[in-house]
Amino acid sequence: MNFYDYEAEDARCNVVKMDDYKGKVVLVVNTATRCGFTPQYDDLQDLYEKYQDAGFEILDFPCNQFGNQAPGTTEEIASFCDAKFGITFKLFSKIEVNGENTHPLYKYLKEQKGFGGFDPNHPLTPLLESGLYRTQPDFRNTPDIKWNFTKFLIDRDGNVVERFEPTTF
């Protein structure tokens, strides 16, 4: 299987096939509206506006698994993103990215690109690593998503070419 074999439900409950994005560069990101990384929405929107005409797409998957920082319904999340950040890229329904209810797309993404480490120069790295170490001492060796705003870059052929942890933008 590859990226194009998956599908997901968007914020309006429509099934979207990833093969709709064939020939485009895609950034898949798990997000949260009440996270220290939430201001990355501004950067994501800027990136989208800059490269959309060149065939770049961002797929936003809200997830409430990290500190319950994506509360509310998908509709409430969509309203927040529109009002606060003017998001125009594709918003999907809230999903899980780890555990037994992991969305199939995220199972695939994690199989393709495991955890690469946090940016050692980011001010939140010590806090993230400390918190993760307390609950998952082996966190560095698992492909699980570690926090909100983890990003996967998919090339025009559907290959997962890079994974960016939340401390990287």
Rank of each mutant, 00 (worst) to 15 (best):
T38R: 07
F118Q: 07
Y51F: 11
K110V: 08
N64A: 04
Q45H: 12
V15M: 15
T135F: 07
Y51Q: 12
E165F: 00
L124A: 11
V29M: 09
Q40G: 04
Q40M: 09
F61N: 02
T33S: 15
L109N: 05
G116C: 10
I77A: 03
P39A: 11
M18C: 13
D155Y: 05
D53E: 15
Y51G: 04
L59N: 03
I87M: 09
D60V: 02
E75T: 13
F89Q: 03
D157K: 14
K84T: 15
K90D: 10
F66K: 00
D19S: 14
F169K: 02
D10G: 08
E162Y: 12
F80S: 03
I154A: 00
K24I: 07
A11M: 04
C13R: 14
Q40T: 08
G116P: 08
K151G: 00
D119E: 12
T38D: 12
K146C: 05
D20T: 13
N98C: 08
D19T: 12
N159D: 12
E76M: 08
G23W: 10
V97M: 07
P104W: 13
K90N: 10
D138A: 11
Y41V: 05
G99M: 00
T150C: 08
G36A: 11
F89E: 04
G99Y: 10
G72Y: 01
I87P: 00
